[in-house]
Amino acid sequence: MRIFDPHIHMTSRTTDDYEAMYAAGVRALVEPAFWLGQPRTGVSSFLDYFDAITGWERFRASQFGIRHHAAIALNPKEANDPRCREVLPELDRYLRRESVVAVGETGYDSMTPEEEEVLETHLDLARRHGLPVIVHTPHRDKKHGTQRTLDAIANSGIAPGLVVLDHLNEVTVDLVADSGCWMGFSIYPDTKMDPQRMVAILQRLGTERMLVNSAADWGRSDPLLTSKTGRAMLDAGFTDAEVDGVLWENPVAFYGQSGRLDVTPLPGFELGAEAELFEGNSILRGAAAVPATATATATAS
């Protein structure tokens, strides 16, 4: 099984996670910009973070054989803090980086006017840069917030096929299904969505424009839930091709619209090759790079 996690916050995960992800078949991922748990209080915190998710984290992933791309945005919650709003003029230069394949995460947290203005700014930026957008649907007042989000997308003039509405559930997926936007689902241990519920949605609505992610972050979450969802799909009678379609081809198609996606196997990953360095640090701490195995470069499981 080859997996591309379209939404995961690796900045909060350990190398154990990277190893386990690789072993489970993850070969690519997108890390969208979000809040860090402790609120940021100024622009420089954002810039350091953006540099980290396009630099250090991308390198860290490469040491474990995983292609890492980022999305950049001012997240919905911090859009409400005037000190954080000041980062908006800085986004342009980050959105031009080769490592950045989307604007995100943007959207509503509490449906405030400030969040709306910032969402509109992001949709406009995405349209101008020709980049896809990851839109976070709110956890509170979700149905109403998802409808408001769809309205904002329609008003922006951006092509629906460039937008994924994420963290959907049984109630909100039907609002999005006919919009032309992609549908994203975050598979969590107890909350948001689980593998069995995901399978039920796929059985009802099909696999087209469906994206499955782990959204693994600081909280209780599991970066292997994409793989477990794939297994649940197989158990429910979906074919290998359909599973590959949802877990690999779909994210490749969605983020490929950026023109910057690279999901080829990583060079320098074979046994005996010299590990690359980042600022003089290989982070392998003397251990050899994990050798590329037969499954690493397989085009089908």
């Binding site: 509170r140 007042d141 979700k142 149905k143 109403h144 049984e170 109630v171 519920r197």
Partner: peptide, 14 residues
């Protein structure tokens, strides 16, 4: 808002 959340939880079997 509460009713909408209750509806989501029920639909999710939670």
């Amino acid at each position: 808002m509460a009713a909408d959340l209750a509806e989501e939880r029920e639909a999710a079997g939670r």
